[in-house]
Write a protein that binds this DNA or RNA. Structure first.
Lengths: 82, 82
DNA sequence: GCTAATTACGAGGAGCGTAACTATC
DNA sequence: GATAGTTACGCTCCTCGTAATTAGC
């Protein structure tokens, strides 16, 4: 787990789709998809339910999302300090 | 800035030297040194005062250390959840 | 002379893009 | 057939280790 993954995960959560997240982050869809898969494998948990072309956060996903938000804001705060 | 850098920085802070941090992290001295240098360059701030073979945290270093502790513990908490 | 830190450089792996495929609307 | 996601693959760059250098005890 690293900040890059958390940032991408958060963006997917907020935008509701990988393609939208890709645009926001100026990345491609496959890279986003791959990163989410890696994160799921590393944590050994499913973060999204892939249903009918719609991404749905699992409970684990919701939990991680809250951590990701707190961690990211701390990091941004730290960076803006210097 | 990433979690790897923060982890290494914290270990150097806590152990008081790069060589001790290297042992703790099962890494080599040069890798530690390089990572600290990168962090200083990225944040454009000096984190340690190199005096007489002794590493001394600067004020900026102290500030970053606190952020690093909070961020790292959050990350560990998140990881231990899954 | 030994320990600690920095600098230089090369190898291996992570991360991203392109291309191709699958599937849902 | 258009949009969204996954899989495959290659290239680039990051990260680490080894080797060599500098400096303080």
């Amino acid at each position: 787990m690293n900040l890059r993954q958390l940032k991408i995960f958060l963006t997917v959560c907020e935008s509701g789709s990988m393609s939208k997240a890709a645009k926001k982050l100026y990345m491609t869809q496959p890279s986003i998809s791959q990163t989410i898969s890696e994160l799921e494998q590393e944590l050994n948990v499913k973060l999204f339910e892939r249903m009918n072309k719609k991404l749905l956060l699992t409970y684990a996903g919701e939990v991680l999302k809250e951590y990701a938000k707190r961690i990211s804001s701390l990091v941004e705060e730290a960076q803006s300090t210097f």
